[in-house]
Design a protein around this nucleic acid. Structure first.
Length: 645
RNA sequence: GCCGAGGUAGCUCAGUGGUAGAGCAGCCGAUUCGUAAUCGGCAGGUCGCGAGUUCAACUCUCGCCCUCGGCUCCA
């Protein structure tokens, strides 16, 4: 019999008879590996463990430690879901069922909606099928036969997939017991190991994710190889709920959204407003330090202006409808750029002035479809920490670099440690959605790429994600529980300077067109605030905390002293609250803790006697007594350093 | 926008056609208390809005408003 040579990842080689499977090799290496193996990688390609190997090959045996293997595992779990659904509801039509980051989903078409009770039944059926340890077997069918099979079963979506995806005459299927599914694979050998999963929700989804296509019911499941990981994930979801800025916004009285006013419109309550003011004060100082000029521009401007800028064309879907005033149409601004451009254009500019950096905390209004609104993170009215930089070509890379560095300073000051950078380019297949020529786009993308490379910033290239007027660098930050949020953005613009005939007089005395960079670091004050609430779980560092210290007299007897202390703190510029309610100390402490107030000053007989304050920190607990002056000095230094405690 | 689930007191939630409930918060009183909830009382509602069915609607039907989850991740 022929032998073939298997090269393992450590370089070792093995001679085995042709037709040996990866599973057999795994068991040879060690019985334990044989048991833990989920799937194999042969010459870089994922294959079933049961696939007979017939030529010399580089082989890795993958276990749950390999992320790709986990995805295969989840994909098999998706098949298990479909198998269970088909047993319970034989007439459903099948869509697709891929793995996702935390599990899997599968799509179905069924007349009646799946209810929560249905999900329970399906989950039980999945466990039942898993317990039988049914093998996942690969089968090859001629394309015509495959189509015929699905036609008979009325599975028109599967037919569509085969028509689109099958390039070879034979197409692969996987069977899980009675269930058979058109699938490239690979899969784990059998269902027995799929135990740690939980069906989470059922949601509507368009076929192939495209609006206008039929809607399917998508059943989502969380799924991990180990129960422990599933438990951790479910715990993380609980944690996320606890930190949800919408809940904390109400609990801590930071902001609200009101039906009477309209969806996606934010009311900043006094405590939220304090945080915003501190944030803005920091930002304005930083902008000034970095050579930006702060401006203000109107909220409504003539529609004509938005035609010039191209927004009325490219951005129409996201704008509020124009309003008519004295027979002229006015447009509520969805962006700040045209306003800043008008300031630039208000007089002739010299190359000596460049770069000109115009910054504005500019409030904009955008029409977002009702289904996409989400707390502070996706709203219809918001304030961007916007700026537009007008510069000469030779200045552009430096300006972009400064923006990216500024963005990092923002992340540092607000306590974010993890971030991801994306470079978003145009979509070459949809040039009609973008302003400017392909050459201009290439030039701009190159400039951004160079900057990132020079700064040694790892980034992902995202084609088709650019703004309509130019490519951009986006900084997405990763919050405490691993979710990414897009905030900072630095966007090139080869469009507006031309549309508005922007010019400057160069050294040569003739007129040139400046380049333009749009940038926002928080993205919007609202979104950044929302992320910040979740980042700190509402426990803001002292410099941002709406109430920095709460004075808690042990009983009414010490009210006089408490009032004195409170006034001294106020005089020192500390945001302080006196809790003089007729409550026990424990209750006052509890309420201060729940309000996440950084410091509590407990005042009783001992403190009056010694003229001290007993300090309790919301996280560190009882810190003992000290003089009020000492406390004030310590707190002021904590505030001034913007310590992230 | 679309699919699904929801909307009952400030908050969290119970209430399957027959006089709207609880806990917390609030107010009043008692208590004067040492590091995460003192006790008692009172008040609080157009049951999201509007139509309809019914002797009777928080409850059933229809329309609208709003909220939540999802709608990118290739068999």
């Amino acid at each position: 019999m022929d032998t073939i040579q298997i090269t393992l990842p450590d370089g070792a080689t093995r001679e085995v008879p042709s037709g040996t499977t990866a599973a057999q090799i795994a068991t040879q290496i060690s019985p334990r590996l044989g048991k833990e193996a989920l799937v194999a990688r042969a010459d870089g390609e994922l294959v079933d463990l049961s696939r007979p190997l017939d030529h010399n090959i580089k082989l890795s045996i993958l276990t749950a430690k390999d992320p790709d293997a986990v995805q295969v595992f989840r994909h098999s779990a998706a098949h298990l879901l479909a198998a269970a659904v088909l047993e319970l509801y034989p007439h459903v039509k099948l869509g697709v069922g891929p793995p996702i980051d935390t599990g899997f989903f599968y799509e179905f078409v069924r007349e009646q909606p799946f209810t929560l009770e249905d999900l329970e039944k399906i989950e039980a059926k999945m466990h039942e099928l898993a317990a039988k340890d049914v093998p996942n077997e690969r089968k090859l069918l001629p394309k015509a036969e495959a189509l015929e099979l699905y036609r008979k079963a009325n599975q028109e979506f599967k037919c569509e997939l085969i028509e689109e995806k099958a390039i070879e005459p034979m197409v692969s299927f996987y069977t899980t017991g009675k269930f058979i599914d058109f699938c490239r694979g690979p899969h784990i050998p059998s269902t027995g190991r799929i135990k740690a999963f939980k069906l989470m929700s059922v949601a509507g989804a368009y076929w192939k994710g495209q609006e206008g296509n039929p809607q399917m019911q998508r059943i989502y499941g969380a799924c991990f190889v180990d129960q422990k990981e599933l438990d951790e994930y479910l715990h993380k979801l609980e944690e996320a709920k606890r930190r949800d800025h919408r809940k904390l916004g109400t609990d801590l009285d930071l902001f609200s959204i009101q039906d009477e006013a309209g969806p996606g419109l934010i009311f900043w309550h006094p405590k939220g407003a304090i945080i915003r003011r501190e944030m803005e004060d920091w930002l304005r100082a930083e902008l000034t330090r970095r050579g930006y000029d702060l401006v203000f521009t109107p909220h409504v401007m003539r529609l004509e202006l938005w035609k010039t800028s191209g927004h009325a064309n490219f951005y129409r879907e996201n704008m509020f409808a124009p309003m008519e005033v004295e027979k002229a149409d006015y447009q509520l601004k969805p962006m700040n750029c045209p306003g800043h451009i008008l300031i630039y254009k208000s007089r002739l500019r010299s190359y000596r002035e460049l770069p000109i950096r115009l910054a504005e905390l500019g409030t904009v209004y955008r029409y977002e479809r009702s289904g996409v609104l989400h707390g502070l993170l996706r709203v219809r009215g918001f304030t961007q920490d916007d700026a537009h930089i007008f510069c000469m070509p030779e200045q552009i890379e430096k300006e972009v670099q400064d923006c990216v560095e500024f963005a990092w300073e923002v992340l540092r000051v607000f306590g974010f440690e993890r971030y991801e950078v994306e470079l978003s380019g145009g979509d070459p297949l949809r040039p009609q959605d973008y302003a400017g020529t392909p050459e201009e786009w290439k030039h701009a993308e190159d400039a951004l790429t160079n900057t990132l490379k020079r700064m040694n910033v790892p980034y992902k290239f995202m084609p088709g994600e650019a703004a309509f007027y130019g490519p951009k660098i986006d900084v997405k930050l990763v919050d405490a529980i691993g979710r990414p949020w897009q905030l900072s953005t630095v966007q090139f613009d080869f469009n507006l300077p031309g549309r508005f005939d922007l010019e400057y007089v160069g050294e040569d005395g003739s007129r040139h067109q400046p380049l333009m960079v749009h940038r926002a670091l928080w993205g919007s004050v609202e979104r950044f605030f929302g992320v910040l609430i979740e980042q700190y779980a509402g426990a803001f560092p002292a410099w941002l905390a709406p109430v920095q210290a709460s004075v808690l007299p042990v009983s009414g007897k010490f009210e006089e002293y408490a009032k004195q202390v409170t006034q001294q703190l106020k005089d020192a510029g500390i945001r302080v609250h006196l809790d003089d309610r007729n409550e026990k100390l424990q209750a006052k402490i509890r309420d201060a803790q729940l309000q996440k107030i950084p410091y509590m000053l407990i005042l009783g007989g001992k403190e009056v006697e010694a003229n001290t304050v007993a300090v309790r920190h919301r996280a560190k607990g009882d810190l003992g007594p000290r003089s009020l002056d000492q406390f004030i000095a310590d707190l002021k230094s904590e505030i001034n350093s913007r310590a992230a405690v």
